[in-house]
């Protein structure tokens, strides 16, 4: 039902985006959009920002000026956004990383709950990968394996954001103590250890999972979203949180704005983002990068963000 809610909201947002030219005629934005990337040049978020900004002028009538403000797990960039005027001309290309960093920090420079969200532009699908032919190569097998206390605990590697996916699913079944969550600073290192047999399973993004699907089993998708056609073709039928009747973990990529930004600007920015993501060249380039566009307008994404924030807060203690 979670999925239905989410997709319904998304569909609503989408229809709003593509059938509401009213906003386009207003004089917002009146200048260049400062597009803050809270990481150094070259990461995943940076690539999204650079692809999206390449059509910024066509959509906004003004350029999108990408500024990298890296450091301190993305908190520097987020803080920088908070220091800008709340006039709708500065947006943050956010991901779960600065949210987690602020949740873990004792004296965070901002409250990750106090933020306006113009749009979701993607949702990651934390995907659990295991070797083929193991008793835990399928979700049902994994659950049965973990329920049998005579079996050893299983190790799952991945970045913290990614690991929250299977952690939340297993915690809902009371099985979180039967696995060992092994955090890595990057997916590459985690996959390296997994392929070398040093950890039992690894949790990765869709594009990495597609690359591994050939010789490995795809166990579960912890989000409520379906894979795209290409990924489905490579990975076959993979259960997701919704098909399993569990609460999903949907880590978003989103456009954040200053908490004091006026409502109509947040909404208008969300609508524009929808237009931007719907342009041919963005669709083509993002597709080539192996990523999926998942658009949600401001209202839908703020609701979804609240849920994912609650999930993260609930399961972060598992790491500490």
């Amino acid at each position: 039902m979670k999925l239905m809610k989410l997709t319904a909201l998304a569909a609503m947002g989408a229809s709003l985006a593509f059938a509401a030219p009213a906003f386009a005629d207003s004089d917002y934005p009146s200048g260049t959009i400062k597009t803050i990337v809270p990481f150094g040049a070259g990461g995943g978020t940076d690539r999204w920002a650079r692809v999206m900004s390449s059509v910024g002028f066509d959509v906004f009538g003004h350029g999108m000026h990408v500024q990298n403000r890296g450091g301190a797990g993305g908190t520097i960039g987020w803080k920088y956004m908070m220091d800008q005027k709340a006039d709708g001309h500065a947006i943050l290309m956010a991901s779960p990383t600065p949210v987690m960093a602020a949740l873990i920090e004792k004296n965070p420079p901002y409250d990750p709950a106090k933020v306006r969200i113009a749009a979701y532009y993607s949702v990651m699908k934390p995907t659990l990968v295991a070797p083929k032919g193991k008793p835990y190569s399928t979700w049902a097998g994994l659950v049965a394996y973990l329920k049998d206390d005579s079996n050893k605990k299983l190790t799952i590697g991945g970045t913290m954001t990614q690991l929250l996916g299977p952690a939340s699913l297993l915690a809902q079944l009371g099985l979180e103590k039967r696995v060992i969550l092994v955090p890595y600073s990057g997916t590459g290192k985690a996959v390296n250890d997994y392929l070398g047999g040093h950890i039992a399973m690894v949790n990765v993004t869709t594009s990495t999972a597609v690359g591994l699907a050939d010789k490995n089993a795809i166990v579960v998708n912890a989000s409520s979203l379906e894979y795209n056609k290409k990924a489905k073709a490579a990975m076959g039928d993979v259960p997701n949180a919704t098909t399993l009747g569990l609460t999903p973990f949907n880590p978003p990529r989103f456009v954040a704005m200053h908490p004091d930004t006026p409502d109509e600007q947040v909404v208008a920015m969300g609508v524009k983002m929808g237009e931007l993501l719907n342009t041919k060249s963005v669709k083509r380039l993002i597709g080539k990068l192996g990523e999926d566009i998942v658009y949600m307008d401001s209202a839908a994404s703020e609701a979804a963000y609240k849920e994912v924030l609650a999930e993260a807060q609930k399961y972060l203690p598992l790491f500490q």
Binding site: G71, A72, T75, M100, I104, E105, K106, P108, P109, F319
Partner: peptide
């Protein structure tokens, strides 16, 4: 645990 340490209480 990703918990900050030895940061002299400076978030950055």
């Amino acid at each position: 645990s990703s918990v900050p340490r030895n940061t002299f209480d400076l978030w950055w």
